[in-house]
Design a protein around this nucleic acid. Structure first.
Length: 272
DNA sequence: TCCCAGGTGGGTC
DNA sequence: GACCCACATGGG
C-alpha cells in the first residue's frame, strides 16, 4: 500500500466529486471523518481528508495513475490568473467557490459510455446505471483483502455485448447507443469532434464531454441545460468564451459546479 | 398524477 | 438552417 499527501490548497476533491465530470467518486463521512472512494477504469483509491491535506492510499503500482488522473502535475495558476484579471464577477465568484477544481484524466472509454448514458438523465441515476454496468461487465476489485467494487469494463470486455445483455441496467432507450459504441471501430472513436458526432446517440454536448473528460481537450465546451441557463440568465446571451481560449472547458466546469449547487432545489439530492 | 433529468434522432417547414 | 416531439426510466 502506498501513501501520498497533497495540499488541499491546490486540489478540491469535494468540488471535483460534485462537478459532474465523473460518476464513480463518492464522498463519505463517519462522525468527523471524511474520505473519498474513487473508482476509475480497473483501479480504486481511498483519499482521507486530514485538515489541510489529503492522504491518498492506493496500491503501490497505481500511484502514478492517480497522480495523472487528478491532473496533479498540471499548473492551473494561469487559468485563475486570467479569471481574476477579468471583469466578470460571476466567473470570479464561481472560481472562488470551486477553487482547486481540476479536469480529470479519465479512461476515454469510460467517458464515452458514461456520457452517452448521461443524456436526458439525472446524475444519481447515471451513477446507478454505471454501477450496474460495472457489476455486469466489469471484474471485481480487491483492496486490502476485500472486494470493494467492480472495474469499469474495458472496451475489449464490451466489444461483443448484445442488446440482451444490456437489458435490466436501466439504460432505457440509450441501450442501442451503447451497443453501437461497443461495436465501433478504432477510427470511429478518434478524439475529434466530427468523428465523435457520427456515433449514434452522440450529439454536440456528449461529444464535447468525451473530448474534455475522456481526452483532456481543455478547449472542449459542453453546453448542457445548466450552461444554457447560465448563458441566458446570467449573461443574457452575451457570454464570450473566446476570452478563455484553450481552457474553455475548465471555465465551463467552474460555472456548472457553482450555478448548479447554488440553484438546485435542496429537496433534490445532488448525489446518491 | 405530472414534471424533470449534464440530449439526441428524426421528422417537418 | 430553425423549430417540434418522442424517446426509457425513476425520483420527487
Amino acid at each position: 500500500m502506498e501513501e501520498y499527501r497533497i495540499k488541499k490548497s491546490s486540489v478540491n476533491l469535494h468540488a471535483i466529486a460534485e462537478s459532474g465530470q465523473c460518476f464513480r467518486m463518492h464522498e463519505h463521512t463517519d462522525g468527523d471523518k471524511i474520505w473519498f472512494d474513487v473508482f476509475s477504469a480497473d483501479k480504486f483509491i481511498q483519499i482521507f481528508d486530514e485538515g489541510d491535506t489529503y492522504l491518498l492510499k492506493c496500491s503501490v503500482t497505481d500511484l502514478k495513475y492517480w497522480i495523472y488522473y487528478f491532473d496533479l502535475d498540471a499548473d492551473y495558476d494561469y487559468y485563475y490568473a486570467v479569471i481574476d484579471a477579468s471583469r466578470d464577477d460571476f466567473l470570479k465568484t464561481a472560481a472562488d467557490y470551486g477553487r482547486g477544481m481540476r479536469i480529470l484524466n479519465q479512461y476515454y472509454w469510460e467517458a464515452i459510455i458514461s456520457f452517452i448514458i448521461s443524456q436526458n438523465n439525472n446524475i444519481p441515476r447515471i451513477q446507478k446505471i454505471i454501477e450496474a454496468l460495472c457489476e455486469r461487465f466489469g471484474s471485481e476489485i480487491e483492496y486490502e483483502g476485500k472486494i470493494v467494487g467492480y472495474s469499469f469494463p474495458s472496451r475489449r470486455e464490451m466489444k461483443d455485448v448484445s442488446m440482451d445483455q444490456l437489458q435490466g441496467l436501466g439504460l432505457g432507450y440509450r441501450d442501442k447507443y451503447i451497443w453501437s459504441a461497443c461495436h465501433a471501430k478504432d477510427d470511429e472513436l478518434k478524439p475529434d469532434l466530427d468523428t465523435l458526432l457520427k456515433l449514434n446517440g452522440v450529439g454536440p454536448k456528449v461529444a464535447n464531454c468525451i473530448l474534455l473528460y475522456g481526452f483532456h481537450h481543455m478547449y472542449a465546451y459542453p453546453v448542457d441545460t445548466w450552461v444554457k441557463r447560465i448563458e441566458a440568465e446570467v449573461y443574457h446571451g452575451r457570454f464570450n468564451k473566446c476570452a478563455y481560449r484553450g481552457f474553455e472547458g475548465f471555465i465551463q466546469q467552474l460555472m456548472f459546479y457553482y450555478y448548479r449547487h447554488c440553484n438546485d432545489s435542496p429537496t433534490k439530492s445532488l448525489s446518491k
